[in-house]
Write a protein that binds this DNA or RNA. Structure first.
Lengths: 191, 191
DNA sequence: GAACTCGGTGAACATTTGTCAACCGAAATC
DNA sequence: GATTTCGGTTGACAAATGTTCACCGAGTTC
């Protein structure tokens, strides 16, 4: 049933999805839906959790790597690209519903992205470049990174629909941007 | 009719909007809709244009200002906050439909954001800090700024629903982030 | 003054929808 | 071996939907 929903949400959004539509796609009778979810919103929340599980794995794999800044940037962008490629439906769902019409789903996504930012912040604190940084500064940097990741993922999403060259350009741009941020980081407060 | 649509899209998204719903809100008969638009998508595109007109004005007003980097950042963030406050329905609409379920609307928004980036890029090229920057570098910086603006506007959108304190925190974070970017900019390629 | 366009109405069409109650077989529990 | 739970079905209900057609009054144009 979740798969059916996800498949339909490829070119629709949650608010315009219908119970009957989902069950039809899943090959079940309409009433069967209510055996699993009370609401369509509930199905949405379930999809959020499913989607974020894989995202979580991705983020950790980026944070865990070691190497100099350049290598790290290259790998981060690459991981994002691969992730979008391999989980396109999930990523599309998240992008679409992040500001979508269903409050509960929006809140679930936002809360989870906030948790990601916290995790990234904790990882940043461990790097030597961050010595002397305040909590607030770390947090804002983490949010900048997360926002940038989201933007990049969205861009990949639209690009990969067809254009393999545009995908390369997006990756190049993202790397440059991360390099600039990393530069600003090294010179923060005259460090 | 546009106003009616915009009002309904406060807690719905375009794909789930109905012709009858719009006309009912506008106080007209269902058939009247087809006198103005062939489609609901067409109404969406019209709303995009309406929304982007005000956005355009905002961006120009930021770019036109002069002053040192700090002042510029403060004013930019302030303009964004004010804009979200005064045009909340339009901004909400853009955020929601940017990755929404209606292709034509999505494309219209993306094309226009691209044009914004070009405009920002042109303005950046005139600043002395950008001497020696390649076209590509300018473009990536412009996109970074535009993406950041979009993220910030989205954040304001959610915050202003109720919480006036959270709004101040978001503004503070945005300023820090812009400051960091501006720092990276000054040290780009060892300038 | 006649003709035409513009923006509006009302009624009708088949279609789709959400939701529920009653029922049912199989598997798990006791 | 009886009973309960689980996940499924059928069928029905009123309600809402997109779209079209014929019609109409008020301005505008000729």
């Amino acid at each position: 049933m979740l798969d059916a929903g996800l498949h339909l949400l490829a070119d629709q959004n949650l608010a315009s999805l219908g119970v009957r539509e989902v069950t039809r796609e899943a090959g079940l009778s309409p009433a069967a839906f209510y055996r699993h979810f009370p609401d369509l919103a509930a199905l949405g929340v379930a999809l959020v959790e499913e989607s974020l599980a894989s995202l979580h794995v991705m983020i950790r794999s980026v944070l865990a790597e070691a190497g100099d800044a350049e290598e790290l940037i290259d790998r981060a962008v690459d991981v994002i690209r691969r992730h979008v490629r391999e989980h396109r439906p999930h990523v599309r769902f998240l992008a679409r519903e992040r500001h979508g019409g269903v409050r509960r789903v929006r809140e679930a996504i936002d809360a989870e992205l906030g948790r990601f930012a916290a995790e990234v912040g904790a990882a940043l604190a461990l790097q030597p470049v961050s010595r002397g940084w305040s909590e607030q500064d770390l947090r804002m940097l983490a949010e900048l990174y997360v926002d940038h990741m989201v933007s990049t993922a969205s861009a990949f999403l639209e690009a990969q629909e067809a254009d393999p060259d545009r995908e390369r350009r997006i990756a190049a741009t993202a790397r440059l941007q991360l390099r600039l941020i990393s530069l600003g980081r090294r010179h923060w407060r005259g460090n």
